[in-house]
């Protein structure tokens, strides 16, 4: 029993810390837009890493942004996803992407002196 303790601690640590891992990248000037303030969400599955298969092929096109840029992307894996990754020795690796689109660039406000309908 005692000999299992280090392994149990290692497994718990992996679960707790692995499942809380979060990686974020964002534009330095960002005007993010999501869904009523919430980030947009996309579940993704990788099998055998870059050498294998992915539920998104070579990448997920953020169609939610309607052709616009991404403002922020966070990669996260929850407890369930971490368990599955551990049980499959990393071969099956699900995760969730949380992202915001960058706001659409709206045309500049002028020709201000001649007006445009106002």
């Amino acid at each position: 029993m005692q000999t299992n303790t280090p392994y149990i601690i290692m497994a718990l640590s992996l679960l707790l810390n692995g499942s809380c891992a979060s990686h974020t990248i964002r534009a330095s000037q960002f005007d993010p837009v999501g869904n009523a303030g919430q980030p947009l969400e996309h579940g993704t599955l990788s099998i055998a890493g870059r050498a294998g298969l992915s539920s998104d092929g070579t990448g997920y096109p953020a169609l939610e942004c309607r052709g616009g840029d991404l403002a922020e992307v966070e990669f996260r894996r929850n407890v369930g996803q971490t368990v599955l990754t551990l049980l499959t020795l990393g071969i099956v690796s699900p995760a969730t992407l949380y992202f915001y689109c960058e706001k659409q660039e709206i045309p500049p406000p002028c020709d201000c002196e001649t007006g445009d309908g106002l």
Partner: peptide
């Protein structure tokens, strides 16, 4: 997403 802006003449 509605971010229009313009100065008033």
């Amino acid at each position: 997403r509605l971010s229009g802006m313009k100065p008033i003449r």
